[in-house]
Computed example of a mutant assay.
Amino acid sequence: MQWGYAPFLYFVAVLGLEAAMQKECRIIEALQNKLTYRQRLQYMKHYFPINYTVNVQFEEVLKAANITRLRDQNVSELSLRYLWLSVNSQVLLKIWAVLLERHPSWEYTQDLCHLFEQLAEEYENYNQGNVDANVQGVVEQVLTGDAGSSQKAVPPKALLDNCVKVMWLLYSESCK
């Protein structure tokens, strides 16, 4: 009798995951629309002083090569997406923190932060216990602002360029 319910429960679970992925893909699409090259150039380069940089932790400079290296170490896609989300949320907060409310980039950065918050709400539904240990360590270090971590001065546009490249790498297959 119980075996008759197993396929039904599996089907419901798959539908639930599919619905969550569709919402996640809608948020990623909104981020892609907000992070176009033209907007990154305007809001993160032209509206900032020449050679302006933001101090971030070394781990907050997340590049596509980092993701490729972690994939080679068999880190799960969920863990990689969680890492990307956590790192870039903190980067955006650091960029936003240096802006005055009347700065032309303030509202743009606020909108990006809001989209990342929506995506974080989606990830709260996932079991964070499934995140790989080495990724969890990096995320904790970024979130706590570990003073022992080395700092790096990076232009805001370069940080968002890395964000877009990694986003494309992580979501291009699942969110077509």
Rank of each mutant, 00 (worst) to 15 (best):
E122P: 04
G148M: 09
F8M: 13
F116R: 07
W84M: 04
Q42H: 12
L119G: 05
V61F: 10
V164Y: 13
S79G: 06
K152N: 08
L119H: 14
Q39K: 13
A64L: 07
W96D: 09
Q57I: 06
D72W: 08
V166A: 03
K45V: 13
H114G: 01
Q110W: 07
E29W: 10
V135C: 02
L80H: 10
F116I: 06
R40P: 12
R40A: 11
H114R: 06
T36I: 07
S89W: 02
Y37F: 10
Y47Q: 07
V142M: 01
F48V: 03
L115C: 00
S172D: 15
L159W: 13
L170K: 08
C163S: 07
V75E: 14
M44D: 13
C113P: 00
M21H: 14
G129N: 08
N55F: 00
L70E: 07
D132M: 00
V98L: 06
F58A: 13
N130E: 15
A19W: 03
H46G: 02
T53K: 08
Q136K: 06
G148T: 12
Q32W: 10
W168E: 11
I28E: 12
Q90S: 03
D111V: 14
Q22V: 05
Q2I: 10
S150F: 14
Q39D: 15
N74T: 15
A97N: 08
A153I: 00
A20R: 15
Y43W: 07
Q39I: 07
A158I: 06
A153W: 00
P104A: 06
T68Y: 09
A6Q: 15
R40V: 11
Q90F: 00
G129Y: 01
T36K: 10
A158P: 01
S150D: 12
L93E: 10
W106R: 14
K45Q: 15
V12I: 11
T36V: 06
N55H: 02
L70G: 03
H103E: 03
H114W: 05
L78S: 12
G4W: 04
N33A: 09
L143G: 02
W106N: 12
R38D: 07
I95H: 00
E124D: 13
H46D: 13
L115S: 01
Q22L: 06
L15H: 03
N134A: 02
A120R: 05
R69E: 12
T68H: 10
K157Y: 13
L99S: 05
L92I: 02
